[in-house]
Design a binder for these strands. Structure first.
Lengths: 198, 198
DNA sequence: TTGATATATTAGACAGTGATCAATTTCCGT
DNA sequence: ACGGAAATTGATCACTGTCTAATATATCAA
């Protein structure tokens, strides 16, 4: 076979990404299969490799798409007009993760080989999520403390992440914790308060 | 072949666990191979299955051993007589993880199938780590607040965990954070202070 | 229109994986 | 000494990611 031109390169990339994302949502990172995605798209595996270069880059692309959806999810929650934007943020973090468990955990299950850094374009899209948090944390702090917002925001993302992953993978349940979200919000409040927030 | 009695069942289990643990440390969760472990031990794969029952249970056993070492590591750090036991604890969490990256990440990379809960004996050994933290948090709180220690301790473990995993997998580096340990300690201090600690 | 070149696409092969099973060998109690 | 039970094995199955050689198609020059 040769160039079929049933689909342009861009179309193919979009199809593979869409099917790959759906497959990841269905089956999860551990059982994800590039061959299965190829089958669903109707092309041979080699075509995936031709377009994405490697398994790792395909997964990285899929996960970056998940970041996009996640950021979108957060903005929607914030837009509902809650008076407590920080709580809405933490709740949005948790709800996206639990509503899209396979997709969300895949983000952290996947590790690129140490010699292969994530492509800049993907890294930038992923950064959008942190940007949202930085923006909200900045707004929550008093004017004099706002220069500390970026570092604090990143740290609070880590705090919430820890609670979220323990909640989803059962660590908390095993330890008898039944309200991980409340705990996460409490920790975030304490740190914001220590930084001068009301 | 049949019963070789080169080794007793207990000896075999110990050998497989030792080699499995070493292999995990070397190669990491993603490339771990039960067959490779079998080869190193000098038995067929079936023997591993005979003893551990499934791949998942072998991994669970290996990871539980890592928990044992981790708890031991924490106690050692605490025993050095630092005046700031909380900082020593967080530092011990981080240093074990970074000195045993493959082993440590394997703990969180592995997920048992939802229908198969972790065996009680293993869960108990894993709990020892949390017990240490609960003990130290209790000691750090004023007498009147000590009943809140267990929940707070679990939550602080999650906080530190989030920082640790972001540090090790490069999320923090990507966002420009260069002192994740300091951040983690700061967050923990804030929460302890909010709970009434000095 | 033809022919040559470059590219896309594929099937197939390779070296692995976890899982399972029947066959075999050894052990243990009688 | 013997029979039943348990352990160990090699073989097999259905997969996986990765790579390569062959081939079919498109593109462009003459």
């Amino acid at each position: 076979m040769g160039r079929r031109s049933d689909h342009s390169r861009a179309e193919l990339e979009a199809m593979i990404l869409a099917e790959g994302h759906a497959h990841m949502a269905q089956i999860g990172f551990a059982r994800f299969s590039a061959r299965e995605v190829a089958k669903r798209v109707g092309y041979a595996v080699g075509t995936l490799y031709n377009i994405f270069g490697s398994y790792d880059r395909l997964i990285a692309a899929i996960n970056t798409r998940t970041f996009d959806l996640w950021a979108e999810h957060l903005e929607k929650r914030l837009a509902t007009g809650s008076d407590d934007r920080i709580a809405a943020l933490v709740e949005g973090y948790f709800s996206f993760a639990s509503e899209n468990m396979n997709l969300w955990t895949a983000i952290y299950d996947h590790r690129l080989p140490p010699d292969m850094p994530i492509p800049g374009a993907l890294a930038q899209r992923r950064g959008a999520l942190t940007d949202i948090v930085v923006r909200e944390v900045t707004a929550a702090l008093p004017p004099g403390a706002r220069d500390r917002a970026p570092r604090l925001a990143r740290s609070l993302v880590a705090t919430v992440h820890g609670h979220c992953i323990f909640a989803l993978t059962g660590s908390f349940a095993l330890l008898g914790e039944d309200a991980p979200l409340d705990m996460a919000i409490a920790r975030v409040r304490e740190s914001l308060h220590a930084a001068g927030a009301a």
